[in-house]
Design a protein around this nucleic acid. Sequence first.
RNA 1: GGGCCUGUAGCUCAGUUGGUUAGAGCGCCACGUUUACACCGUGGAUGUCGGGGGUUCGAGUCCCUCCGGGCCCA
Length: 861
Amino acid sequence: MTFSPVPDKPALEGLESKWDGTWSAAGTYRFDRENAERSRVFSIDTPPPTASGSLHIGHVFSYTHTDVMARFQRMRGKDVFYPLGWDDNGLPTERRVQNYYGVRCDPTLPYDPDFVPPFSGGEGKSVKAADQKPISRRNFIELCETLTIEDEKQFEDLYRRIGLSVDWNHSYRTISDESLRTSQLAFLRNLHRGEAYQALAPTLWDVTFRTAVAQAELEDKEQPGAYHRLSFHRPDGGTIEIETTRPELLPACVALVAHPDDERYREYVGTTVTSPVFGVEVPVLAHHLAQKDKGAGIAMVCTFGDLTDVIWWRELDLPNRTIIGTDGRVLPEAPSAITSEQGIAAYAELAGKTVFSAKKQVVELLTASGDLIGEPKPITHPVKFFEKGDRPLEIVSTRQWYISNGAKDPALSEALLERGAELNWHPDFMRVRYDNWVGGLSGDWLISRQRFFGVPFPLWYPVSADGETDFDSPIVPSEDQLPVDPSSDPAPGYDESQRGVPGGFVGELDVMDTWATSSLTPQLAGGWERDPKLWALTAPFSLRPQGQDIIRTWLFSTVLRSQLEDGRSPWSDAAISGFIVDPDRKKMSKSKGNVVTPADILERHGSDAVRYWAASSRLGTDAAFDPQNPTQMKIGRRLAIKILNASKFILGFEAAPDARVTEALDISMLATLRRIVADATDALEAYDHARALETTETFFWTFCDDYLELVKERAYSGDTAAQSSAVAALRHALDVLLRLFAPVVPFATEEVWSWWHEGSVHTASWPTPEELDAVASGEPATLVATSQALTRIRRAKTDAKVSQKTGVRRAVITAPAAELAALRSVEADLRAVGRIAEIHFTEGEELAVSDIVVDNEEATA
RNA sequence: GGGCCUGUAGCUCAGUUGGUUAGAGCGCCACGUUUACACCGUGGAUGUCGGGGGUUCGAGUCCCUCCGGGCCCA
């Protein structure tokens, strides 16, 4: 049996690449599906990082939390299924591919198998949209796959470097054919069960990206605006004045609403008024959502100015007079309600204008007609934006696909709340955010996006003989035909030549929301409907780790899909990490420019140190990180170095093969460690890795500073039972400590393990209190009392300003009876560590060391 | 406006069902080159537990209220 020799100068440098290579070659973290048993499987539904996004320090933070748990469970004998996927399906990838290759996706084009992109590496500078070469969706996806492979390599390097114990054989990519198939299959199942449906409805619309946006992607932004006061005309010649921030929607006005309790307007409810300039007669109605104290207290309802307009339109059964198109400009055709010559002429001036210009124009028209009262009053108010967009959302009427999410189905909503209640949340209070989200949903999940890149809906529509597309009778493929691209593949039962012709078919051009794919990560990783044996082993998963910011999106949508498909929660536990904040407690984000990239941090401090920093933060708690002053990483680095040095020292003592732990101090130290093992295990079982680490670390420093110093002399003292006891206890403790530290400090512990053990510490068994029973029958109190006595001896020497190795002729130790007995039992060790010739013990109330006589000098304490 | 989190030493944070004199690390000060470790060791000082009120024999901890910070939702 040969082990790696203990180096003269152990160092952290180089451990990362050395051990990553060894672990890869040995398959240390491989999921052994042949021997795995469902009852022993610990499966992790890891967040797939956006590979085309930029790396930042937050990436190592939460992933380390997960890895600590994976390593703990693996050492406990679990069959750990720990895959990592890549999310390369979404806007960031799309934009990057457009710029890099100078192309854009046009799903109406056919696939070109011999396509070569016009550029390669057009990084940074974007090619003007007009100059981008249009290519088919399939070609576009192929380019995405090519480019993201490079990005994924970088991420994988990072994650290997920080020592994630991922099984890299189980990676997946959200744009792979397999992911497309899974997404489409899950959608077809939703469709067949009636959970997916299409509807023509007012839709939140981003005019820049020209796509519909879901509730989960909304963001309120404070925007400047202005209340314009304008008068509607009553039949009796009087006026009602309203205030609006969006006068440009006046031609889309369908009613005025006031609160039913508002006495100012009560007499007008039920009457009609005529809109200024456009001359359209609209009813005055009452609704409780009208705010008496907002503006004039009576509002103009337009189709559609905001979400309240949508509610009024729906609940008050109003007509649709949409005037804004999907390009954000005023539609060419005036609503049919505008019939007056003046109104038609006014509308003609607006047609084709942007919202901004239309507003100016309407204000001019109102001023000319005398219906604008006073000057517009500037205000700031919250306006809805797409979280990735920079222009306010419009609301337009379009045909969209939805998946029911409980917003309109109390039974489903109830089931989703039950799933949330069954989940073990770490920390528990995160559950409330889920409950609030489920309870606050106001509409079903809009999953169609008018983008080009993404998972296409597996749908076609028949075209009638007279050329009309029949959206109500979608043509669906069979499950075994998946994946399909309806813009390249003909509809089942049709020939490609029938595309877009009367009596033929058209393909659905929309793609799915990326969350529609991301909500299926357990299915993607676990081989749902692809590898039934793997799925049976892994699902439902044990753990979903993720950030607190995406509970409403990723966590919720994954629960939803699992509920719809399997009627169960996708996991048993959810671990929610906080995020990284800068020293001013600002969230780290690209837009704030305070992002710290991990490469040089890892280079400077080493992976174990960075992991220590991450593992010191509890789940759900934000961690402050100051790159100028990375205190926690320095401490982590010091710990890792200490592990190497202390281990080298301990392993340097001669060990008798039959050594037994006999000395009181040794037994007490191991009894303390026994308690540490129990506490650390409890903490990890409760997902409190920070506490487990702190517990272990505190013991380790006491172990080094006090115990090791106390037994040093004895361990050198030649071939005696006492010497053997010290060495046996040291080795026993080291063995346990390395295993306790292994999840957090995998490199240094593995290095030390290799000096005296075969195999990996990461597949060794997690320590148990029971394994220490035979050697730890004593009382932890002995070590505590001895440490206290040692501190007092040291203090006396420090007060005397002499070296700690200075000899002492005599000292008196006073202590209560119980402690005194303990201290007498370790007298030899105390004398050795303090170089004390003679110790006198006396009983007293408090532990004290006094009457110390230092060699050649006198000092008392 | 609503929900959740949070405020403890100069800094970063522990503090369990309420229970002696509120802790750790860093930083700071002093000392020390001891047969692993100067990427070191030893020792020391450091508090209006955000403010106010209440419950209690007893409150950092429970309740009310106010103030500050953060996240999410309106």
